[in-house]
Design a protein around this nucleic acid. Sequence first.
DNA 1: GTTATTGCAAACAATTTGCACCCAC
DNA 2: GTGGGTGCAAATTGTTTGCAATAAC
Lengths: 129, 129
Amino acid sequence: MTQVHCTRAQTAVLQVLQQQHEPISAQELHKLIKQHQRIGLATVYRALDVLKRMGKVQHRVTLTGEKLYNAVEQDRHYMTCLDCGQSFPMNTCPLKGLELSLQHTSSFTIYYHTLEFFGLCEPCSAQGG
Amino acid sequence: MTQVHCTRAQTAVLQVLQQQHEPISAQELHKLIKQHQRIGLATVYRALDVLKRMGKVQHRVTLTGEKLYNAVEQDRHYMTCLDCGQSFPMNTCPLKGLELSLQHTSSFTIYYHTLEFFGLCEPCSAQGG
DNA sequence: GTTATTGCAAACAATTTGCACCCAC
DNA sequence: GTGGGTGCAAATTGTTTGCAATAAC
């Protein structure tokens, strides 16, 4: 857990994730890194696992069960439509302050959070009922 | 999408989920229902899928990738330790009011949200560093 | 009687593991 | 030179699909 140096794979994974504007899947991540260096898919998963445990990378899960990873500092959240499955990014995080105040009332050390709203987007809610 | 009646399976799934205090996996759910009626695992997944789309059931994903389902009205949240993997339930939902106010500023119809904090629990943060 | 729902088993896909090889120090 | 990091391919797991049988109305 107390790891000072990042391995080659971990560095590559973190770097590519930090360049993305949106969370991406492990498979996509693998493709992107392969453009620059020889790397196996398993190594990508292993690096992601370590980075997650270090609190540097987080992931969210789409309605289809796919995991999408992003660098923690990005702190992006989504509203996802249960009907069409589209995810709409939110421009702000409603928990910014709350997380800080929670740090004080609890002995748990918070690295990051996941937050996602589910419901119906405007078009779907107009049609479906 | 516009479904008035619930099927036998859907009823069973929802009922069992409402009886649980904590989210459970689809496999556990299947075992529990099988005690009372003949049901296939696939049917459980199918029922969960419909109920999720109806906004009656939601799920969260553990660090190990397992999906745990619960009835939406329960609105339970967790703090999960990245080191030992344990999840600690939170007694309140910090978004109670916020979700309502969000309904007004956005055209998205919110059914429910997922929220989870990740970091280190007290024991792990004492040891690990 | 007709249509949607179900159970089963086979198929699928993402992820994890075992192991020999390679690189960094 | 040694130990951890890595690639590859095989194994594993949770989930989904096809289809004939069944239940609901």
